[in-house]
Computed example of a mutant assay.
Amino acid sequence: MQISSTMASRTSSLKFFSLLICSIAIVQMATAGDPDIITDFIAPPNGTVDGNFFTYTGFRVLVGGGPPPTAFKVLKATLAEFPSLNGQSVSYAILQFPSGTTNPPHTHPRSAELLFLLGGTLEVGFVDMKNNLFTQTLQAGDLFVFPKGLAHFQYNADSQNPALAISAFGSANAGTVSIPSTLFATGIDDNVLAISFKTDMATAGDPDIIADFIAPPNGTVDGNFFTYTGFRVLVGGGPPPTAFKVLKATLAEFPSLNGQSVSYAVLQFPSGTTNPPHTHPRSAELLFLVGGTLEVGFVDTKNNLFTQTLQAGDLFVFPKGLAHFQFNADSQNPALAISAFGSANAGTVSIPSTLFATGIDDNVLAISFKTDVATIQKLKAGLAAKP
Rank of each mutant, 00 (worst) to 15 (best):
G238L: 01
S171F: 03
A185L: 11
A71S: 14
K76L: 09
P105K: 01
I210Q: 14
A312R: 04
T301S: 14
I94Q: 07
E295H: 08
P239G: 04
E295L: 06
F17H: 10
Y228H: 03
P104R: 02
K245E: 11
I367E: 10
A43W: 02
K320D: 07
F318Y: 05
L115G: 03
K248P: 06
G170Y: 02
V61L: 11
A323K: 00
N161T: 12
F126W: 08
A157C: 10
K386V: 15
D300Q: 08
I179S: 02
D158I: 00
A30C: 15
P216M: 09
G219K: 01
E113S: 11
G230L: 04
S343Y: 03
Q308F: 08
V145K: 15
E113R: 03
S9P: 00
R282A: 05
P45G: 12
N173Q: 13
L114Y: 06
A202P: 05
P83S: 08
Y228G: 06
S263I: 07
G51A: 08
T135R: 08
V74W: 10
F269C: 05
G382I: 05
L365P: 09
I21C: 08
T354V: 12
G58H: 11
D142N: 07
A340G: 12
F316D: 02
A249K: 04
M201S: 15
L193N: 02
G219N: 05
S13M: 15
P387L: 13
L234E: 03
T354E: 12
A140H: 07
A112I: 00
P147F: 01
G223I: 03
D330K: 06
A93P: 00
S350Q: 10
A344E: 13
A381V: 06
P35R: 06
T39N: 13
P319Q: 01
Q377N: 14
I209P: 10
R110F: 06
A30E: 14
D208C: 03
T309G: 00
G141Q: 07
A243E: 14
F144K: 11
D40G: 13
D34A: 10
F153C: 07
N363Y: 08
A157Q: 13
F325H: 03
A174H: 12
A25M: 12
P334T: 10
I195T: 11
E285V: 00
V246E: 09
Q136P: 00
D361G: 04
P217H: 04
L14C: 10
G272V: 01
T309H: 07
S111V: 01
S261L: 03
V74E: 15
G47T: 13
N52D: 15
F298K: 01
A335I: 06
L19Q: 13
T101C: 09
Q2C: 12
A32L: 13
A185G: 07
A77V: 09
I3S: 15
K320T: 07
L365M: 04
G125T: 01
S271D: 10
M1I: 14
S368H: 06
P277Y: 05
L62V: 09
L164F: 13
